Computed example of a mutant assay.
Amino acid sequence: MTDVFINYRTGDGEKTATLIDQELSRRFGSGRIFRASKSITPGQAYPETLLTKLRQSTVLLAVIGPDWTNFRVRLGDPEDWVRKELLEASPANFRSFPYWTAGRPTGWTRTTCRRNWPGSPTSSPSRSAHTTPRRG
């Protein structure tokens, strides 16, 4: 069973996701950490494997890189995989944690993160798509 699912956007945060994966794997074992580019082998059905592993996880760690603002509109796209993963891991289902590679924005708390998480009860699709975490 996978314990930690690492969510990140290719082109923004994958280096940090790799380092987090390496350290968590060292401490807890590689089989307990899921990172798509490492954990899905050639020939496996990508969407099915990814969603199955996500649903088996107890924690989602969302790596938010320094170029998050350049990708924020994509969070409003129903076909965006980062969005799909975040919605599947809604706060009601299991623990989800944002990890800002450039530091948490000033004034953001865990409650602020939950309100701005795609699919949260207080978040509209347009609000989720335009959330702009910045270094604070």
Rank of each mutant, 00 (worst) to 15 (best):
V4R: 05
F5Q: 06
R9G: 01
T10A: 10
G11L: 03
D12G: 00
G13A: 04
E14M: 03
T16I: 03
A17V: 03
I20K: 07
I20V: 15
Q22P: 03
R27A: 11
G29D: 13
S30V: 09
G31P: 00
I33H: 03
F34V: 06
F34R: 11
F34P: 11
S37Q: 08
S37P: 00
S37F: 03
K38R: 14
T41D: 05
A45R: 12
A45H: 14
A45V: 15
T49K: 06
T49A: 11
L50N: 08
L51W: 12
L51H: 15
L54A: 14
R55M: 11
D67F: 01
W68K: 00
W68F: 09
T69F: 03
V73A: 10
V73P: 13
R74E: 12
L75S: 09
L75K: 08
L75G: 11
G76H: 05
W81D: 04
K84L: 15
E85Y: 06
E85N: 07
L87W: 04
A89F: 08
S90R: 15
P91R: 15
P91D: 07
F94E: 04
S96L: 09
F97K: 12
F97A: 12
T101K: 01
A102P: 00
A102Y: 07
G103Q: 06
R104H: 01
P105Y: 08
P105A: 14
P105N: 10
T106M: 10
T112D: 14
P118Y: 01
G119A: 07
S120L: 07
P121I: 01
T122Q: 13
T122N: 14
T122I: 01
S124G: 07
S124W: 11
P125R: 09
S126E: 14
R127K: 12
S128D: 04
S128C: 09
H130L: 08
H130D: 15
H130I: 00
P133W: 06
R135N: 09
